[in-house]
Simulated scan of single mutants.
Amino acid sequence: MSFTLATWNINSVRLREGLVARLMADEGPDVLCLQECKSPVEKIPVETFRSLGYTHMVARGQKGYNGVAILSKLPLEDAGGRDYAALGHARHVAARLPNGVVIHNCYVPAGGDIPDRAENEKFGQKLDFLTEMRDEFFAERPARSILVGDLNIAPREDDVWSHKALLKIVSHTPVEVEHLGAVMDAGKWVDVTRQDIPQGLLYSWWSYRAADWDTADKGRRLDHIWATPDISGAAHGSRILRPCRGWEGPSDHVPVFASFDL
């Protein structure tokens, strides 16, 4: 079974329904994982997506905030969702493909602006969220699984425009990178994107605050595709669709792709 998967923080699936449809029509990934849908499940524009061949969906929704969805041309079985750190947020959903592979779609909290849990409750929630993910994967030892999503951390020095400038900026601080590394180690996850593109600056997010995001190019790689070791060798064709950041009315994130032959 061969399939292509994409992950995209869409920053409102209803507001950017047309952009999702454009990606589906132009790129046609077999599975599309969306984060920050900002919609109850029943208000996700599924008819538009079904008309483009995405006849299956597993989702967790929330009015105005968060929300994750897995849209697929392939049959999906709902494999549950976790409320990490008991935040009451729709930030995780899992689905099982016909070949038994489980896809985890995650939206890790951004963590606010101050990288200190004593001064910033949101930063503490982010670390707690990651700690519970680590503990779950350590206990369950996932197999034949793929984890994707906006993990809101750029772990490597070449995942940000300036390692030195961002060391004290939320998303690239050492404590966040350490926590994300612990999640990876607990599940023995392989970073598929960096497996395929091991060297060089690589970004999936550019701030709305930049007057000219493309020229400034102060990006971060916040969006990830991981796989367990038993299937990571079957992954290939990773790419980041940078041009989407220049579409009219864009998300500040762009889709990340990988293909699998299983």
Rank of each mutant, 00 (worst) to 15 (best):
G80M: 07
V93S: 00
A6S: 04
R96Y: 00
V183N: 00
I44E: 07
D135G: 11
L19F: 09
W247F: 06
S2Y: 15
D113V: 14
T131Y: 15
F137T: 10
L127G: 03
S232M: 01
R117W: 12
A69Q: 05
A139Q: 13
W161F: 12
R60C: 12
P40S: 10
D158I: 07
S232K: 07
M57A: 12
W205I: 00
E178L: 07
S51A: 15
P250C: 05
S145T: 12
G64Y: 09
L241Y: 15
A186V: 05
W206N: 03
P115D: 01
A216Q: 15
R209T: 09
A234K: 11
N152E: 01
R22M: 12
S251L: 09
V102M: 08
D150K: 02
N120V: 03
K126F: 01
K43E: 15
A86Y: 11
F123P: 07
R242W: 15
L222S: 00
C106I: 15
I103Y: 00
Y65H: 12
D158Q: 09
R245Y: 10
R14I: 00
V58A: 04
E36R: 06
I153Q: 10
W226E: 09
Y54G: 03
L127W: 06
Q199Y: 14
G111T: 11
V93Y: 03
E248T: 12
V20W: 06
W247Q: 04
K168H: 13
G237D: 10
V190P: 09
D223W: 01
T7D: 01
F3P: 01
K126R: 04
R117Y: 13
S39L: 04
D30G: 00
I231K: 00
V41Y: 07
L23Y: 09
R22K: 13
V108Y: 07
R141G: 13
I10C: 07
Y107T: 08
P45L: 01
V93P: 05
K122C: 03
L166D: 13
E27S: 12
A118S: 14
W213V: 07
R239I: 04
V46C: 14
Y84R: 08
D135Q: 12
D214T: 14
G100H: 02
L130P: 05
D83K: 06
E77F: 10
F260L: 03
L5T: 01
L180E: 04
E178Q: 11
V192T: 08
Q199F: 12
W226H: 10
R242Q: 13
L23S: 04
D217S: 12
V108M: 07
V170S: 04
E132L: 09
H92A: 01
M184W: 13
A143C: 14
L241R: 08
T215S: 14
I197C: 04
A69N: 02
F137M: 14
I44V: 11
P29Y: 05
W189T: 06
A110S: 13
R209C: 08
V175Y: 02
R16T: 08
Y203V: 00
P45N: 01
R96I: 09
V192K: 03
P98H: 05
A211R: 15
E132K: 10
R220N: 09
D116H: 08
S259W: 11
E136M: 14
D83F: 10
L71D: 10
W213K: 13
E121W: 14
D113N: 15
A143N: 14
W226K: 05
Q35Y: 03
G200N: 02
P243D: 06
